[in-house]
């Protein structure tokens, strides 16, 4: 996978990923907990229920997303700096460390399982991304221009 020019250079991109993941979590959490609070409230209390569910839960969802994204970006940058190359293995290693770090208070087994799960998840993401990239390249492959119709030789 070649360098992605739409992203900023490494140390500062951590901040961008933190904010982007946080924003994604907040916006997605508003939809999720809005619907959940609406459905779980009695009739007549549905809109206040949705609002209070959003108020209570959405900052937490945003924070969880933000910490995950920021930690992943930090490890991604660290792995890039150590390996000096950019390929799908970077994301998998960074995912391994991210999953492990987030579960580190749950004990050794929990940390190990979470790290492996997270690495597998990132591996699937990278695989799907590469498949998609191959497919796009195959769709836009260079084509030979169609030859003009061969003119029939003039008969004598």
């Amino acid at each position: 996978m070649s360098a992605d020019h739409t992203r900023d250079p490494c140390p500062i991109v951590i901040l961008n990923d933190f904010g982007g993941a946080f924003a994604m979590g907040v916006i997605g959490g508003c939809v999720w907990h809005g619907i959940k609070g609406f459905r779980n409230s009695p009739y007549g209390e549905r809109f206040p229920g949705a609002i209070s569910a959003i108020k209570a839960r959405v900052p937490v969802v945003g924070g969880n997303f933000g910490v995950w994204g920021g930690l992943f970006s930090t490890y991604d940058c660290a792995v890039k700096a150590v390996r000096k190359r950019e390929d799908p293995l970077n994301a998998i290693i960074a995912g391994f460390f991210t999953g492990g770090s987030l579960a580190i208070r749950g004990g050794w087994r929990h940390t190990r399982n979470s790290a492996i799960t997270c690495a597998c998840l990132l591996g699937v993401f990278e695989g799907v991304g590469m498949m998609f990239q191959r497919y796009m390249a195959w769709q836009n492959k260079p084509m030979a221009p169609p030859l003009p119709e061969q003119q029939a030789p003039l008969s004598a």
């Binding site: 951590i14 901040l15 961008n16 904010g19 924003a23 924070g63 920021g70």
Partner: peptide, 20 residues
């Protein structure tokens, strides 16, 4: 303070910095 390509960059950098 940092180069910005538009409102998405402002949003991500501002939110990330204040959150941290």
């Amino acid at each position: 303070l940092i180069p910005s390509r538009g409102w998405t960059d402002d949003l991500c950098y501002g939110t990330g910095a204040v959150y941290l």
